[in-house]
Amino acid sequence: MKAKKERGGTPIRGLLPLVALLVIWELVGDPASPYFPPPSTWIDGIQPLIDADKLLPAIGQTSLTFVLGLAIATALGAIVGTLVGASRSVDRALSPSLEFLRALPAASLVPVAALVLGYTTQMKLVVVVLPATWPILLTCRTARRTLSPVLLDTPRTLGLSTWHRTTKILTPALTPAVLLGVRVAAPLALIITLLVEIVTRVNGLGAALGAAQAGFLSAQVYGLLTIAGILGFAVNWIVTRAETSVSRRMRGTV
């Protein structure tokens, strides 16, 4: 968090209003309130989940779906994006279909996927992969399209094989674009993971959140919301750092 502040230039003192809000909430809030239980009750709220050994597995299931979904989306987006970006005619052939698929909101896919594939972890993955693929596919397509022709001619004139052309030139040249896409896709994938879990209650943090809300356990809802927030913050921080450091190396701008 400190590094983020240094780079983004957002002063830390800006956290004051949030801290003040939480303190006032704590002081004024009624511990018995069904709507706004003060922060100190949140830990008690999630204590039953910890005692029943449910919290860590839930975080694990959410993280697993998220990581796998993002990994599949990255591979898919990078490959399709590169192919579409390499050829104008492939682009023209596929883009209307891709545009239509992109317009389908992830939320509307959840009930459909649940009906067709059942309430399973595979279903969760499918729903996460589809929307998370777009940002990666789009940045990769643009990057491939704007790649300098000289960069593509260089390995040819030096007699590199197709395999080496792909691994030594194309892959490193497109890596920054893929990571830029991942940076946008990662928070999205986390949101969609939680969304599927909230709607279908299959497993994971979102399912716990939905169950807590259904049982009117308001302190537990706020506690789980905080955990989801920490997860979101961690994901953002990791992908942003990875993207900037790798791009710097690959693009040669320090």
């Binding site: 928070p187 809300q213 809802v221 919301l225 927030g229």
Partner: peptide, 11 residues
């Protein structure tokens, strides 16, 4: 902003 928006739906 880091809080995933969907997590607010139950709230």
């Amino acid at each position: 902003r880091a809080l995933p928006i969907v997590a607010f739906v139950p709230v």
